[in-house]
Amino acid sequence: MKAEGTRVESPYVDAAQRALAQQLGMWAFIATEVLLFGGLFIAYAVYRVHYPDAFADGSRRLDFWIGTINTAVLLASSLAMAIADIAVRRDRRRLLSGCLAMTWLLGALFLVLKGYEYHQKFVEHLIPGPHFAPAGGPAAPEQLFFVLYFAMTGLHAVHMVIGLGVIAWLFVLSRRGRLGPASPGRVELAGLYWHFVDCVWVFLYPLLYLIR
């Protein structure tokens, strides 16, 4: 064995130890993500308290219905992901690939709606910068609201895109029959990531869309 130059790939004693290590790693990563988004949430909180009127005004310029529908879409995609996780453990392969496809499609729908919303903001001159000119004149620090809006939803969208990539990869694996109860780890870890990204939106939705 040695002469072939192979090496013991895994530093682990057994699969259970490996699974726990991966769980820990993923949750530590999620803690990192909490603080990454947390910086934005803190900036948001500071300015929201300072300029409540400007933030309420900015919020009224967002599309309540797109925000609400998008929340429902994301929650549904999380449900599909949760079902996929159960399916992989019970070896229900068709259900697994179906749920992964569903998760992907709902995630993509979210991004399409988000993209449409960005387009609207562009048309309405709500992109911060020299061309920022909302109808009826802005409440003065309103650009702050929109800088934060784009930073928060943009960072969230980047996470969504990464998640879609991961889920597409899992879908391919599932179609090839490479995912099964023997190694549920990949679906489980991807699920943790996907649900967490969902949780971020769960907070972005009231903070950005529901201020009156």
Binding site: L75, S78, L79, M81, G191, H195, D198, V202
Partner: peptide, 11 residues
Amino acid sequence: KLALIFAFFMK
């Protein structure tokens, strides 16, 4: 919502 997702979806 966060609590539900963490407790059940994220197990």
